[in-house]
Design a protein around this nucleic acid. Sequence first.
DNA 1: TCTTTCATTGAGACCGGTCTCACTAACGAG
DNA 2: CTCGTTAGTGAGACCGGTCTCAATGAAAGA
Lengths: 361, 361
Amino acid sequence: MEKKNLQSSSVTVADVARHAHVSKSTAARVLGGYGVTSEKVRERVQASAKALKYRANELARSMTTGKSKTIGVVVGDIENSFFGIAVRSITDVLNAHGFNVILANSDENFDVEREAVNVLVGKQVDGLIVAPANRYEIAHLENLKSLKCAMVLFDREIPSLNVDTVVSDDAEAAANATAQFIDAGHKRLAFVTATQKERRSDDGEWLIPTSSVGRRIEGFLSACSRAGLKKEDSIVVLNSDPDKGLAPDISNLLDQPERPTAILASDSHVALEIFKQAQERNIELPGELSLIAFHNADWTEVTRPTITVIDQPVSEMGRWSAEQLIKRIEGSTEPALSQVIKMKIINRQSVVPPQSVVPPK
Amino acid sequence: MEKKNLQSSSVTVADVARHAHVSKSTAARVLGGYGVTSEKVRERVQASAKALKYRANELARSMTTGKSKTIGVVVGDIENSFFGIAVRSITDVLNAHGFNVILANSDENFDVEREAVNVLVGKQVDGLIVAPANRYEIAHLENLKSLKCAMVLFDREIPSLNVDTVVSDDAEAAANATAQFIDAGHKRLAFVTATQKERRSDDGEWLIPTSSVGRRIEGFLSACSRAGLKKEDSIVVLNSDPDKGLAPDISNLLDQPERPTAILASDSHVALEIFKQAQERNIELPGELSLIAFHNADWTEVTRPTITVIDQPVSEMGRWSAEQLIKRIEGSTEPALSQVIKMKIINRQSVVPPQSVVPPK
DNA sequence: TCTTTCATTGAGACCGGTCTCACTAACGAG
DNA sequence: CTCGTTAGTGAGACCGGTCTCAATGAAAGA
């Protein structure tokens, strides 16, 4: 009553101990829930804690235990519903196991990602779930292996890292969707993504930094060549100028004299932009343009036509990554797992044979 | 070379100091970037730090400084694009100022929210941005006022808390949208939200826990009564069974013999469900049913008809909340601000006079 | 040459918990 | 009655940083 005129600054174990007339050690045992204490003392300490409105300082706790009960999650862009759903399922699983999530957006920029990873490691996260923006820039992730920080890659693989990874079967799904176009009679196809290509590799080729997109392109191209399509009839549209966004590239694609009759969109944002621009140009869907989109976005069921999509089991991927991370944190030492979750095509109305081969009724 | 056979456990200032042949204090000064050090020593310490791959332990740093450089953000559901955008803009601002974000989903459940807030405070966050799920349950937030933890309310106000708050002008915008329906000749209107009503208050009335939704309903009802609409012609549809979701409630609404001719949807999810169910029932939009939705979701531009929306400046709200929080953390003591950000209606094609008053051409 | 000043450094307390270890008292066994 | 065992407690080191304060030594002024 005469002491403690400090305004509000936090109440510590020592304060509670003093109030309950026990040693700091004993109060800590009660409040920390470890060791042994007598019934009598326990009640007394708890009463004091309540009276003083004691709150444990988790930072101090983490300092000594070495466990922060915090996980870093690094995604491309939380605004994107793909990552929104992923983060949701990840946090649900982690929270259920007593972990909290520090969220970081890489903006699909490698430098931002590296910085984010460093900060998170500095904050002593127990683990990381990362959707790496660039499969060719992996030094910052490689460094983690020497630390006690668990890691799971989400949606994008980096085989050389040899670390737990969950992806969907991007190449196969893209190939299947492409085959569906080809089976319907399409001869000029495009794959459209908002990803940019990057620095030439040693052998002079352009590289796709985002592994999932890269694999989709592989699938698309292999299905095209398997069907004997000419190279110039299997168009891959990338983002040519990040400042302007993808819209100009889609304009170019739709305005070219021999525009494709079928497009595979790498995500729902891309599909929406294609849909919008087709409407503006009075390009009739699906008659003049067939469309398949990755990601079963909610709105793809209400457009006319409804849109055939490749449904990514995002929640399942999120859940797997979180559960696997927890296993690692709990000490699992099994060899790195690579989980591939199958996608399935949901057939709706946006794929039909190209107009030219269908005689008008 | 003879010591330090510890496998990988972290390198500390003391280790660096030893390696550089200086005291712990001096090494700490260099690595922490405070105090004064000579050029020579600085270089030597930095070289040692690099050689040993030193990484600062931010937890330890936070312990002594009392600043964790971490902010807790509690939203209803990150899967919802409204919150997705909000979190994005919040993290952008905070990251730019050196803060990290711990994300928590309340699922619009008060108990979850309270628990989340407690955990975050335990983790010594420097501040909190909260979208409180229940404006009548505020004890957990009131407690924070005695702590050194800054707070800003996002999208939902609790006047009695007297804390910085950013909201949009929900009542006014709802009233304007409703007036637009009425001006077009509609006489039977509905407001639809996924929120549930809750425990009767003392005077026997049902309460809407989500402040923003509550204010929208107020605006809707006051515009209705101002226009002289009968009470039974101003329908408010709430979620009657959280387990089943809102779909059955929308079914009921659309299947009733005298269904409304215009609906105001409280968010884009609700609007999508209404749109979908109207399509299933061959209810023609906008002829048989006019629709206005809160939130300018990307897909509202590609449906047929395109949907008139109330555009919420979500990013601006997010930015404001983050900037205001930073001001508080930096010590601002100005009286609590209440920022109201105006929404504006984006007129598209989904509002027309009701079919019965328009003679078919 | 002696004192003063200032820049630089080192020693050690501290943050708020956890945890090891020693100590006490009570109990049952021999 | 003495000894070993054990439940319960307290003292104090420790985690990895920050920060205060005193000590050192060289340069500058007298």
